[in-house]
């Protein structure tokens, strides 16, 4: 038996919005410790890794490991039927986990919606994400990162990210011209969520597709801050932390040109 009741149901709605364009079908791997999802996009350029810890649910029950194969577009459609303030409960039976039950309770507990989502067999690629010591780690406001990606998309389809001692610079060059945005590291004691924090081992310069970064910024509503981790010739990690877990996106760098 798998049962997970999420008081902040709106979080699940936001999460689905932030993965559905990158990945169509994926397994939700449920265990005692929580719910995890890892999947690459079709072109194998981007990877999504999502974790919701069991402590974030009330209650959470998972007697044995479950792998729930889900079409994320279908799940997203059903989740749109839940109110933003609804409590969402997910359930799957031991024997016949061929469907996932979802119930949506409104805050007054006087309206309960119940839905069933058919599950599917998904032949999942075996992924392993190694622990990495990154050359540069940047913590910055997520809305600022979203704006930079959106603005530079006007100029080019790629962005070069350069990190040096106390500056991160985003540069785009295209047919119409070029643009760049530099952010200096700042610290705000009153509003730490507005600071730009740069931890640097060595300078980094890497180029990435803006189309994918724009997709990653769908995670912006999940957290006020975004964490960018970069190392030369390594995939970029873009992470949004939540109280109950995280969503991490990885993006392969562009090489040569």
């Amino acid at each position: 038996m798998f049962e997970a009741r999420l008081i902040q149901g709106g979080l699940l709605k936001k999460l689905l919005e932030s993965v559905k364009e990158l990945v169509t079908d994926a397994n939700f791997d449920c265990s005692e410790s929580g719910i995890a999802l890892q999947a690459m996009d079709n072109s194998h350029v981007a990877l999504v890794s999502l974790l919701l810890r069991s402590e974030g649910f009330d209650p959470y029950r998972c007697d044995r490991g479950f792998s729930l194969g889900v079409n994320l577009n279908s799940l997203n459609k059903i989740l749109k039927c839940a109110g933003n303030d609804d409590i969402i409960t997910l359930r799957a039976d031991d024997n016949s986990a061929d469907s996932l039950s979802l119930s949506f309770e409104n805050p007054n507990n006087d309206r309960i919606g119940e839905y069933e989502l058919k599950l599917m067999d998904i032949d999942q690629e075996h992924l392993s994400i190694p622990e990495t010591d990154y050359d540069a780690t940047i913590i910055m406001p997520s809305a600022e990162f979203q704006r930079i990606c959106r603005d530079l998309t006007v100029v080019s389809e790629s962005v070069t990210i350069d990190v040096s001692k106390d500056t991160i610079k985003f540069t785009a060059e295209g047919e119409l011209g070029s643009g760049n945005i530099k952010l200096k590291s700042t610290s705000s004691i009153d509003k730490p969520e507005e600071s730009v924090n740069i931890e640097l081992g060595q300078d980094v310069s890497l180029q990435f597709s803006l189309k994918y970064l724009m997709n990653f910024t769908k995670g912006t509503p999940l957290s006020e801050q975004v964490i960018l981790c970069l190392s030369e010739k390594m995939p970029l990690l873009v992470e949004y932390k939540m109280d109950i877990g995280y969503i991490r996106y990885y993006l392969a760098p562009k090489i040569g040109d």
């Binding site: 690459m40 392993s128 190694p130 090489i255």
Partner: peptide
């Protein structure tokens, strides 16, 4: 896309 590398090398277990 020009010069776009893939993630297989980093994350895919054979």
């Amino acid at each position: 896309e020009t010069g776009q590398s893939a993630l297989d090398l980093f994350f895919l277990e054979s």
